[in-house]
Write a protein that binds this DNA or RNA. Structure first.
Lengths: 215, 215
DNA sequence: AGCTTATGAATGAACG
DNA sequence: CGTTCATTCATAAGCT
């Protein structure tokens, strides 16, 4: 299936960034990572004090969502890679984006098992899918030759949200008051922290050499 | 260390990212953004109950910086078919409710593109979803006979052949990694929040796939 | 103004 | 391996 490469993309397989932009992104991620850690720290602090104060009635960290996740243990049949696992997988995929051999799979599985339940089949499937999907994207890119780069998107990118019928106000020209619409799911602290499972190494492969933030 | 020596000097200071990398980057940041927001929210709740200690953040709910920064990050728009497009899609679906082939997708996409921004992926997804959901509807009608009721919704009879060997749905309660608590400089909440805003000038990675930099 | 529903998108697993 | 299915997640639209 062709299915194009990315959603509203147009048709390019690679993006080009300047060093500056790369740098900014790097920093941004690093900042977030740091902030998250800091916040977690603070939260723990406050939490402790609060408990000390004896007010742990509702216990906001035992929200339904969290417990439901736990309850669904019996019903969840499909493996879901944890962030830490995903990261490792991505790293490995980077090194050789070919399906690892049988033994390699075993090794990987063993390593990933330290971060959560996993089977060799899971790993195998993951690589199969990863490869297949990354390949598909490439194919959609080909149509353009040479400077396919940023040519394709230059054309018509006004309507990302494509409102029915009448054209909507061009959001690109809306400098301030960006529609801050963010339906955040209520997720518990534990879950939150869980997502940060591998904070130190959460800066993935596109080499974040060294970032000079608080991190 | 040695970095692209000439690259910067030669005026060719660009890096190239693959789609996958871009995607990962996007996710990475999104995760952080969400986590940060959640943590901040919690923090505000908790500290609100500790007013006695002095309110560190003046207006708990007047953190435009934070909000805007995070929301901007967290927002992503998705393709929404216009009525015209939808109609065409439905028509095609009627003719053959099977997922169209590669070339077919391309054709359809091209046609729909005349009514608004769209990609092959959009079309592909649409058919996939359409099919899956229409199928599901049918099975939901079956309940008429006997006692079987609506097992369609029930997860019990999904024992098709799941889990080849040990794909244990573990979802163990997040390990609460201790490793993440490396020494943290005593930085205040406000400062933290402030930091989340500064990198806001960075490229909004959601739109990264459409930026036409290096212009 | 929030809560619910519909649906676009993501992805683990299965199939041929 | 490439393609397809089934399930889940996220969010825009709809409802009360």
């Amino acid at each position: 299936m062709e299915e194009g490469n990315f959603q509203n993309g147009g048709g390019l397989g690679v993006k080009v960034m300047t060093d500056e932009q790369m740098e900014m992104l790097r920093k941004q991620i690093a900042v977030y990572a740091t902030i998250c850690e800091q916040l977690v720290e603070m939260h723990k602090d406050l939490s402790a004090q609060q408990e000390f104060a004896g007010m742990r009635l509702g216990n906001p960290y035992c929200d339904p969502l969290l417990s439901s996740a736990v309850h669904k243990i019996g019903s969840r049949q499909r493996w879901t890679p944890k962030p830490a696992q995903l990261q490792i997988l991505e790293q490995i995929f980077e090194q050789c984006n070919a399906t690892p051999g049988r033994q390699k799979i075993k090794d990987i599985t063993r390593e990933l098992a330290q971060h959560g339940q996993i089977s060799e089949t899971n790993v195998y499937n993951w690589f199969q899918n990863r490869r297949a999907r990354s390949k598909r994207k490439q194919s959609a890119v080909v149509p353009n030759n040479g400077e396919s780069e940023m040519e394709t998107e230059n054309e018509s990118f006004k309507e990302k949200k494509t409102r029915p019928e009448d054209s909507q106000p061009d959001e690109n020209t809306t400098p301030l008051a960006d529609q801050m619409y963010f339906n955040s799911p209520d997720i518990g602290f534990d879950q939150l922290v869980g997502k940060m499972e591998s904070p130190g190494s959460c800066i993935p492969y596109w080499q974040m050499e060294q970032y000079d933030l608080l991190g």
